[in-house]
Amino acid sequence: MRTVPLVGGPVEWRGALDLETTPAGVMPRRLPAWTKEQYQDPSVHAPTVMPSGVRLVFRTDARTLEFEVLTSTARLDGDPRPRPTGMLELLVDGALAGRRQAPVGNVLRMAGPGARQRLVAGKPGTVRFAGLPRGMKNVELWLPQQTPTELVALRADGEVLAPLPDGRRRWVHHGSSISHCIEADGPTGTWPVVAAALAGAEVINLSQAGNALLDPYVARTIRDMPADLISLKVGINIVALSAFRLRTFGPALHGFLDTIRDGHPDTPLLLISPVSCPALEQVPGPAATGPDGRIAALGDPADVAGGALTLTVVRAELARIAAARQASDPHLHHLDGRTLLGPHEADDLGDGLHPTAAAYRRMGRRFAAYAFAAGGPFG
């Protein structure tokens, strides 16, 4: 087995916009390094280093590959085990060739949700994929979408070469936890990855669980990166966190779109409203998780008349803004998110908010059938 450099060598990182060198190895981040100065809340940093859609890509004739990784997973005091670390998935020539549970490394202990974390340092673990097909092949290692994962080493029993250009269009997507897909059954089971695989596109998933809040640094990131296709899924975090009123939501969305259009004036851009979430359809946020583990809206429905936002209000405002801008922006498109998961599928929301693993895959198939079809916004 020979050791292959993780940076500056033949392997290519995709889905990560920053590679941070750590004492253990390389930590991929899904936002550029400069954005760290523009947020202070650890709830923003955490999903940024959860590598949803991040993969290591190369060509090799190796029959055996080893990946040494260091995960960081959370554990509430009193729980017998840390939260699941997720799966590492290996694709060979586009087909799933193996799945391995990511080993437990660092454990972040917490007294309760939102409490200050205490680090219990762990050690890297090795994941091995053996019996791979003979000959030169295209390989992708997908990291677990819900667990910060540092790559410590890559070892192969054959030659490792840089990937060849494949001509796929680059699709950049930004959304909430419902696009981050922590609940998916693996990194290739998130709905953006499912849709991209069906459409033959290269997806870059900038979704941030709990943080799709029209942050200007995200708009500037999308503005400045190469993109053939762009989609934005907007609304659920804005309602659940009571982040805007009706007066401020519209201008913030316009500003976000204006910034992206500064760098991508003619790129197909699909604006997606929220999927169904019964608790927040008619009642404004903020939202909280109840004793039964399900999401509940804490706002006052009477406040909607004064500008409080519900999902119903947000969908109407998104549709209105999209229609108004389309007169001067023919490459802007709009999709009602309930097309991907509707009110008749409430049983597929495990906690009343987040889809199940099966529902995420169904959303990916529906998105691909709509967006990438002939005559669709990405067709």
Results as ranks from 00 to 15, higher is better:
L311V: 04
G105A: 05
L108C: 15
C277N: 11
A153G: 07
L206S: 01
A24N: 00
A196K: 00
R294V: 14
E159G: 05
K123L: 08
V218T: 12
T221H: 08
I321D: 01
R116F: 01
T310F: 09
L241K: 15
A322V: 05
D329M: 03
P5D: 06
A115F: 06
E89I: 11
A162L: 05
N205C: 05
G175Q: 00
G86L: 06
L298W: 12
R63H: 15
D292C: 14
G210D: 13
A287N: 03
A368W: 02
R366T: 10
Q145L: 11
D292R: 12
M136F: 02
F129P: 00
S52D: 09
G186E: 03
T267Q: 09
S231A: 10
A243N: 10
R128G: 00
W142L: 13
A346P: 12
K36T: 15
S43D: 08
Q38G: 08
G15C: 04
R247E: 15
G307L: 00
M363F: 09
A197H: 07
K137S: 08
I222S: 01
G53M: 01
G189N: 04
S273W: 07
D262K: 13
D262H: 11
A357N: 01
P51Q: 06
E345C: 04
V160C: 09
A327S: 14
A357R: 01
A302L: 10
K137P: 02
L341V: 09
P284A: 12
C181V: 02
A323N: 12
G342P: 05
G263F: 01
P301R: 08
A97F: 09
R134S: 12
A240Q: 06
C277E: 09
I238L: 14
P23L: 08
R168Q: 13
H174A: 02
L341M: 14
R245E: 14
S242K: 07
S72F: 02
R315T: 10
A197D: 13
L241A: 15
G337F: 02
